[in-house]
Design a protein around this nucleic acid. Structure first.
Lengths: 117, 117
DNA sequence: TCAACCTTACCACGACATTGTCAAGGTTCT
DNA sequence: AGAACCTTGACAATGTCGTGGTAAGGTTGA
């Protein structure tokens, strides 16, 4: 009846511990289906995502919380725009405009981005 | 001689504590210039960035480490591409292609992205 | 029925994030 | 010179992250 692997089976084939699979689910990054009685059921897509997630974390030495934040930015346009525009200000060269105009420009831009409720 | 505000002056006009201004600098998000004798000198641009950063953190309840990670993604193309493609897999509907093709597609995509040293 | 699973809910621990404060010593300004 | 700054470095308290356990109880399959 099982439409996918149970948590310990999934753990064995992905390299995560069962404990961490529950934790990953808690972060919202990989959520398996559930059987009628509440058992977690990992399908091929979830298993693949778990494997590549593990690779991603190890390869760039990032944390689950980092990827979770990236996911939050991907879902929330306001957050993404606010963060990106804040970061862009850093790269921009003040020489492109007069220092005064530059500051006013930045100020107005952020006021707009942060103003909306 | 001071080409900008010293740390306590900057603290007063931005709402951060002097302690936190040093910490923010440590995260690499806002780095003031230095006087010949090593004093931190905050110019108008830095002050504005500090104010908007504070707004950003409070408004979306994110941490400095989150913004620091966003900065890292903005700077590192490999990291950005790897994270984004991992996240995109979540949104994609397996119905667009057959389940088999879908899985193979995902597998190959991530192999490529994670393969490069 | 009973072993072998599964669930949620806790406790714990080390590492890191966020702040504050304090000490020892250099700089600035009057 | 001396008050009022600044610097780095360190210790500390609290909180979250990542991870492993353990306990009490439900599910499954031989």
């Amino acid at each position: 009846m099982m439409e996918g692997l149970t948590i310990n089976e999934a753990a064995r084939t992905t390299g995560w511990s069962a404990r961490m699979l529950r934790y990953v689910e808690q972060t919202g990054l990989v959520s398996p289906a559930r059987s009628a009685s509440g058992y977690r059921l990992y399908g091929p897509a979830q298993l693949q995502r778990l494997r590549t997630l593990k690779e991603l974390l190890a390869r760039f030495d990032v944390g689950l919380s980092d990827v979770a934040f990236a996911a939050r930015m991907a879902e929330n346009r306001d957050l993404r725009d606010a963060v990106q525009s804040w970061l862009e200000a850093e790269a921009r060269r003040p020489e492109e405009v007069g220092p005064e105009d530059w500051l006013r420009f930045e100020q107005e831009k952020h006021e707009k981005l942060l103003a909306a409720a």
